[in-house]
Simulated assay, not measured.
Amino acid sequence: MDENDPWFDDKITEVESLDANLQKLHNAMKSLVTSRRELSLLTGLVAKSAAMLSTCEEHTGLSRALSNLADVEEKIELLRSEQANSDFFILAEFIKDYLGLFGAIKCIFHERVKAFQNWQYAQMQLSKRRENRGRFELANRADKLDQAQQEVDEWQGKVQRCQQQFDDISAEIKREMERFELTRVKDFKVNIIKYIEDQMAHQQQIVSYWEAFAPFAREIV
């Protein structure tokens, strides 16, 4: 459609850009979830290997260090799994929900285009009915004029209704988009902060595990 309101051109471009980039972010988050889960499994294997090695190591200090290393790796395995869950439930699923919302928004914009097309079709039909009426008037076809006038009146009403529908949906989209933008920014802020805090807590926990393990490594003589 030939857009007369630049707001809609700008907003459609913005929505399509956000949707495309959110899709890329969602794909990246899914890959991150998979990688973290794989890392968790590998960390668990390291824990088991260190535990087995500690049982056959004759050096007391080294055996103790390996045993504690196994404990640390086992704890980190659980943390990696928790991190993967954070990636998935806090951010990936949140992004997925917004991808659904952007899909719905694009459908609404399409409905506006359909409303415009209906309006244009009604205007075209009205023009045809007026042309028919004009031909009957020129031909002095009084027997056809009443019917022709009824059709003109009918399509005039349809044009008015279609225009009103188009104006209404345009105004409603603007109102809803303004509300959506405010909500979207708040939602992203809340979830990103929650995600960052969760990741920081996990990293701090990992650091504390390694700090507790360090003395056992230093005691190896």
Score class of each variant (00 low, 15 high):
M1R: 15
M1G: 12
P6C: 07
F8W: 10
F8C: 07
D9L: 09
D10W: 07
S17L: 08
D19T: 12
A28P: 01
M29C: 14
V33R: 00
S35F: 09
R36H: 15
R36I: 08
R37K: 15
E38S: 13
E38K: 15
S40P: 04
L41V: 13
T43E: 04
G44L: 04
G44Q: 03
L45C: 10
L45T: 02
V46T: 11
A47L: 01
K48D: 08
K48G: 09
M52N: 13
S54D: 00
C56N: 14
E57Q: 05
T60C: 08
T60W: 08
G61F: 03
L62S: 00
R64I: 12
L66H: 04
N68G: 03
N68D: 09
L69S: 01
L69G: 02
E77C: 11
L78P: 04
E82Q: 05
E82G: 00
S86F: 00
F89V: 14
A92D: 04
F94V: 04
D97S: 09
L101A: 01
L101S: 13
F102P: 00
I105F: 06
C107L: 09
E111I: 12
E111V: 12
V113T: 12
A115I: 00
Q120G: 00
Y121Q: 15
Y121K: 15
Q123S: 14
Q125S: 08
S127R: 12
K128C: 04
R129T: 02
R129W: 07
R130E: 10
E131W: 06
N132L: 10
R133H: 10
F136I: 03
A142K: 12
Q149P: 04
Q149A: 06
Q150V: 14
Q150N: 13
E151L: 11
D153V: 10
V159S: 00
Q163L: 10
Q163Y: 08
Q165F: 02
D167Q: 14
D168Y: 07
D168H: 15
I169W: 01
I169M: 06
S170T: 14
K174M: 06
K174E: 07
M177S: 01
M177P: 01
L182V: 09
T183E: 10
T183A: 13
F188W: 02
F188Q: 06
K194C: 02
Y195M: 03
Y195N: 03
Y195S: 02
I196G: 01
D198G: 03
D198E: 11
M200K: 03
A201H: 01
A201D: 01
Q203Y: 10
S208Y: 07
S208C: 10
S208M: 14
Y209V: 00
W210E: 12
A212Y: 09
A214R: 14
P215S: 05
P215T: 04
